[in-house]
Design a protein around this nucleic acid. Structure first.
Length: 660
RNA sequence: GCUGGCGUAGCUCAGUCGGUAGAGCAGCUGAUUUGUAAUCAGCAGGUCGGGGGUUCAAAUCCCUUCGCCAGCUCCA
């Protein structure tokens, strides 16, 4: 028998008979490694331990310390789930069951939807199968035979998958778990060697899903779960989820008195006093960022005649998401986007090429009649306002303009210390316009991204039909990604609205539009900020920046004077003049996450000082009032950024609402 | 919109087998005048999300509707 030469990660090599399974290689290295082995990487490919080595190459054994371990565990646990389900619910059809970033899921076609009690049963069965340490066995079936097998078993979805995924192949790969029913699944693998390796998993929830994610297809039942290499990791994950729930913006919004919702206005926010301060501070901040950089703030109507929506195409494509109104037999629609209104404004006069890029920005409210099931706190609402801008420009200005926009995004997100990811989406199959124009636009977007130093991924074919775009996502407390900032090129709208500018040649030309938002929507951005800061806003954003806490009634007069001086200096200050002990007032102020508590008693009243308590730092000792005000204003100007507070002045003094 | 779950006082939650509803906090009143995370006492507060049904009797069982939550589909 011929020999093959394999190289191990430590650089050593050894020779084994051709056809030797990698399991034996692990065995040959050490019995401990063999016990810990889950799979192997052979020439960069993840394979089963049973994989027979046929040619020379590099071999690395995967154990639970390897980066490949987690997805492997999760995928194998998904199979274990399917085995348990088909065991408990005979006749169940299996769909797909991949590993995800957080765990895994498996989709099934079942007689009746799963209920929570089913999950307990299923998880128990999974544990039972895991205890039996049943091997995952890889089998190569002739393609036609596999199709016949699954067809006979009443699994048409599997037959469909085999047809689509293995076209031209003679053999297809299947995996069995020899449970009482012998669970067989069509799957490329690889898998852990046996169910006994799976020790830390938990089923989390169920939901409905559609075959291939298409709502026109058969509804299926999805079971979500997660798996980790150790019980400790699993517990850690579950605690982390619990912790994250504490910073959920819906919970904090209620506790901090920021906003409420009411059943009579689903998806529309009632901003309470404190929330309104936060909202206005952000709106004002955005103006301060934009107005010096050439953006012109405008306000366009909220309700338009149907004619506008026909021209924009919304009537044809978006009507089911619009709130419609009737007025004197005319059909009107509330705006779901600002663009069409701004186009009318642009088109209302002639523009010279010398004006371009012309930049409109507005913060007026939008209404989208979203399906009830998609509403979610502030992150998905029916009424919201975007920091919505449109830049009208010439083709060769795209690169510079996008670069400036990227600079704005980086600066703004930097001011909040937010983590985000960027994604460039390119020409989709159903694009409009010329390929050459698209290529030029995409090249300019890429070049701008590269120049900005912004890391990004490319999503080929994911652009809008009217132009390529760059999207920015922020992750919420429970790990969901939300699109916030966006930069979208649009070649379609200027055509539809017959937008023009007069070029140097004294002729009419068609401008290009770039849609851009930095926050995305105020509502969603605030939701993510609340979770980002866990409700403890930096001083410049805190709805109440300082609260004065008199020790006894006789100090109220002095305390009120302190509060008034703070207010006079533009600080958002409160006074707690209730007849309560100081510990009680402090506790409440802490729970309200107020940055500064100013305790005043006999000593302070006599000396004209305040005793400063910091939200995070505790008692800071006494201070005269003016120095406290000066320090607070400094902290506000610096947006609470420690690195700047420590000696580096802010590059530009930002104004804050209360100072205006 | 789809599937599942949930909806009890302002908030957080109990409420067993169907027998007409309870706690803590908040609120109000009074006492207390307080030094860095909860002073004490009393009082008041409910169409058990809405509507319909079963029953001698419904927070509890059934139907329906609205809202919320998770996910799916869509999207800032």
């Amino acid at each position: 028998m011929s020999q093959v030469s394999i190289t191990l990660p430590d650089g050593s090599s050894r020779s084994v008979p051709a056809g030797t399974p990698v399991r034996d290689v692990a065995e040959g290295i050490s019995p401990n490694l063999a016990r810990a082995a889950l799979a192997a990487v052979v020439d960069g490919r993840l394979v089963d331990l049973s994989y027979p080595l046929q040619k020379d190459g590099a071999v690395r054994i995967v154990t639970d310390k390897s980066p490949e371990a987690l997805p492997l565990y999760r995928h194998s646990t998904a199979h274990l789930l399917a085995a348990a389900v088909t065991n408990l619910f005979p006749g169940t059809q299996c769909g797909i069951g991949p590993a995800t970033d957080e765990g895994f899921f498996y989709d099934f076609v079942v007689e009746r939807p799963f209920v929570p009690e089913d999950l307990e049963l299923i998880e128990k069965k999974m544990k039972e199968l895991a205890t039996q340490d049943l091997p995952y066995e890889r089998q190569l079936w002739p393609r036609e035979k596999a199709k016949e097998f699954f067809a006979a078993r009443g699994e048409p979805l599997k037959v469909q998958l085999i047809e689509e995924k293995t076209e031209g192949q003679k053999e297809v790969s299947c995996y069995t778990i020899k449970d009482p029913d012998t669970f067989i699944d069509f799957c490329v693998g690889p898998h852990v060697p046996s169910t006994g390796k799976l020790k830390a998993f938990k089923l989390l929830n169920t939901s409905n899903a559609y075959w291939k994610g298409d709502a026109r297809n058969a509804p299926m039942q999805r079971i979500y779960g997660t798996a980790f290499v150790s019980d400790k990791d699993l517990k850690g994950y579950l605690t982390q989820i619990e912790e994250a729930k504490k910073r959920d913006h819906r919970k904090l919004g209620k506790e901090l008195g920021l906003f409420i919702f009411h059943p009579w206005a689903p998806g529309a926010t009632f901003w309470d006093g404190k929330g309104t301060v936060l909202y206005n501070t952000l709106a004002s901040y955005m103006r301060d960022v934009l107005l010096p950089t050439g953006w012109i703030e405008v306000k366009t109507p909220l309700v338009y005649n149907k004619a506008l929506w026909e021209m924009s195409g919304h009537w044809q494509h978006y009507r089911q998401n619009m709130f419609l109104i009737e007025s004197e037999n005319e059909q009107m629609g509330m705006k779901a986007m600002n663009c069409p209104g701004q186009y009318l404004l642009y088109a209302s006069r002639t523009h010279s090429y010398r004006e371009l890029p012309l930049r409109f920005h507005e913060q007026t409210p939008l209404h989208r009649n979203e399906a009830s099931g998609v509403l979610a706190g502030l992150t998905r609402v029916r009424q919201f306002a975007q920091d919505d801008g449109h830049s009208f420009l010439m083709q060769d200005q795209i690169g510079d303009e996008v670069e400036r926009m990227l600079g704005l995004v980086q600066r703004v997100y930097g001011d909040f210390g937010l983590e985000y990811t960027a994604k460039l989406s390119t020409r989709p199959p159903d694009f409009m316009g010329e390929i050459a124009t698209w290529d030029s636009a995409e090249a300019q977007l890429k070049s701008a991204l590269d120049k900005s130093g912004q890391p990004y991924t490319i999503s080929e074919g994911d652009g809008a039909f009217y132009g390529p775009k760059i999207d920015f996502d922020i992750t919420d407390a429970i790990g969901r990604k939300w699109q916030c900032a966006t930069i979208q090129l649009d070649y379609n709208a200027p055509e539809r609205f017959d937008l023009k500018y007069i070029g140097p040649d004294n002729r009419e030309h068609r401008p290009i539009v770039i849609h851009r938002a930095i926050f995305g929507s105020f509502e969603r951005f605030i939701a993510l900020l609340i979770e980002h800061y866990a409700g403890a806003f930096p001083l410049w954003l805190a709805p109440v920046q300082a609260t004065v806490l008199p020790i006894a009634d006789r100090h109220i007069e002095y305390a009120a004077g302190v509060r008034d001086r703070l207010k006079g200096a533009g600080l958002r200050a409160d006074l707690d003049d209730r007849q309560e002990k100081i510990g009680f007032k402090i506790r409440e102020a802490q729970l309200q996450k107020i940055p500064y508590m100013l305790v005043v008693g006999d000593r302070e009243a006599a000396e004209g000082t305040v005793s400063v308590r910091e939200r995070s730092g505790g008692d800071k000792g006494s201070s005269s009032i003016d120095p406290f005000i000066a320090a607070a204003r400094d902290e506000i100007a610096n947006k609470g950024r420690v690195e700047r507070a420590a000696g580096h002045p802010a590059p530009d003094a930002m104004r804050v609402t209360s100072f205006q």
